[in-house]
Design a protein around this nucleic acid. Structure first.
Length: 431
RNA sequence: UCCACAGUAGCUCAAUGGUAGAGCAUCCGGCUGUUAACCGGAGGGUUGCAGGUUCGAGUCCUGCCUGUGGAGCCA
């Protein structure tokens, strides 16, 4: 008999089939008993009735516990009383293992307990919905770039030095070559790729050793970083808005059921269409001051500042042309005002904060050399990067999108820790 | 690193300075359409750790540990 998955049950009505899975829950009413079985693709209610169901199967109900592994056999029928709309009239029950004292009960649990049992927490329907949406987001990120002839460029995880010089990096010994550091961004390598292949995207894990302890931070997170030769800041913003529209519409289309399971209000997602509103840093500061925020011009926005700015719009907002001194050394200055960098951030609605950060890159060798000196960076570590300006330099631009913040926003979660199977945070390295 | 809050049964939480309790989970019994089922019963505790105040501390004080949220930094 063919193995069937619960998500395909609509084609099986009237058939006798096997479902391989685990007991999610059980209920009984004396001579009628219900098993709710999950197989990773959905849940299925199985019914047993005294007399109608073989005694052996009927009696084994008592020994079954939550998360016991089993194979159930029976005829499928439509039934509106069953969760999912289909139900199995159970005729045979094969127990693979009885699970003893499964820790996560169908009641409330605290964050710490659930995080300690993250390997089991992944079995709950809510986590299934989040991880399926994460999968969809990653899939649509790849589709978007692949369909536009971008080449995937894998950047190294071990790097010799800081990409941007500021963040705290994880350090490790690297044989006889001294210290290596876990990458905090693949961008510099992405630039080399763009000047080689025209359009590339780097997609991999990144690491920040900052002691950030908020709902928006992980020490290990995934970032996708497109980089395009001959693009300027405006091209970069257009790419970002087209990209976000693609991702969000793909989730709305393909994962409507999961969004519903998470009780996500999709109002703010349905409005994610290009063009996105664009405001300059100066205009953003004006917005804050009109709202009564005592904001010091020239500093970066904090979490609450970002929320206030984003609340003025019904979709993500692009903030561009930041003061150069709060941005990275490789960003090109605005020819109209050298105090500003040709940088852009995309701030998500509903207080989810910055999901994209990018810029047009400095493409002039002498200017870049001067920036490296101003930031007290070791020039020797950047010689290869400077070569990109020595040999056929061109304007180019790119950005990075944080996958976990994007998943958190699209799912409407209150913390990024649920967006990745095994989150790494300042005080959590296990499981 | 700084600020705030928390730590009591396997889990979620109660308990004026005066005998540590409930719901869920587990075990036993009942119920033929349950939806986190329901009803009855049972077992389950070094109140995070170390001191101190007190006739008496889960409760008050000091220190430490652990966790949560936030700031800074960032995606």
């Amino acid at each position: 008999m063919a193995r069937i998955y619960i998500e395909d049950l609509s084609h099986q009505v009237g058939e006798v089939i096997n479902i391989h899975g685990w007991l999610y829950h059980k209920r009984s009413g004396g001579k009628i008993r219900f098993l709710v079985v999950r197989d990773g693709t959905g849940i299925l209610q199985c019914v047993m009735a005294k007399g109608a169901t073989p005694d052996e199967a009927f009696n084994s109900f008592d020994s079954l516990t939550q998360e016991s592994s089993l194979i159930v056999t029976g005829k499928i029928r439509k039934d509106d009383r069953a969760p999912g709309g289909y139900e199995m009239e159970l005729t045979n029950l094969q127990i693979i293992q009885i699970a003893k004292d499964y820790p996560i009960t169908p009641k409330e649990h605290g964050v710490d307990f659930l995080m300690d049992h993250r390997h089991l927490w992944l079995r709950s329907l809510r986590q299934h919905a989040i991880l399926r949406i994460r999968h969809q987001i990653i899939k649509s990120i790849r589709e978007f770039f692949d369909d536009r002839s971008f080449v995937l460029l894998d950047a190294p995880i071990f790097t010799p030095a800081a990409c941007e010089g500021t963040s705290t990096l994880f350090e490790t010994d690297y044989f006889d070559l001294g210290k290596a550091y876990l990458t905090q961004s693949g961008q510099l390598y992405g630039e080399a790729g763009a000047l080689a292949l025209g359009k590339v995207y780097v997609f991999g894990p990144t690491f920040r050793a900052e002691k950030s302890k908020t709902r928006r931070h992980l020490t290990e997170f995934w970032m996708v970083e497109p980089e395009v030769a001959f693009n300027d800041l405006n091209d970069n913003m257009e790419l970002a808005e087209e990209f976000l529209e693609y991702i969000v519409s793909s989730v709305l289309k393909q994962r409507a059921e999961e969004l519903k399971a998470l009780e996500r209000n999709t109002k703010f997602l349905e409005s994610v269409k290009k063009p996105l509103p664009r405001v300059s840093y100066d205009e953003a500061v004006e917005i804050l001051r009109k709202k009564g925020v005592n904001f010091e011009y020239g500093t970066d926005f904090g979490g609450t500042d970002e929320t206030i700015i984003s609340e003025q719009f019904d979709r993500p907002v692009i903030v561009h042309r930041y003061p150069a001194k709060i941005k990275a050394f490789y960003m090109k200055r605005d020819p109209q005002n050298p105090d500003l960098a040709l940088a852009m951030d995309v701030i998500a609605p509903e207080g989810y904060g910055e999901i994209i950060g990018g810029s047009q890159r400095e493409d002039d060798l002498d200017t870049l050399l001067q920036r490296i000196r101003e930031h007290n960076l070791p020039q020797s570590a950047f010689e290869w990067y400077l070569d990109l300006r020595r040999y056929g330099t061109v304007p180019h631009a790119g950005f990075g999108l944080g996958v976990e913040r994007t998943v958190s926003w699209i799912c409407g979660l209150d913390h990024v820790r649920e967006t990745i199977p095994f989150p790494r945070m300042i005080y959590r390295l296990t499981p």
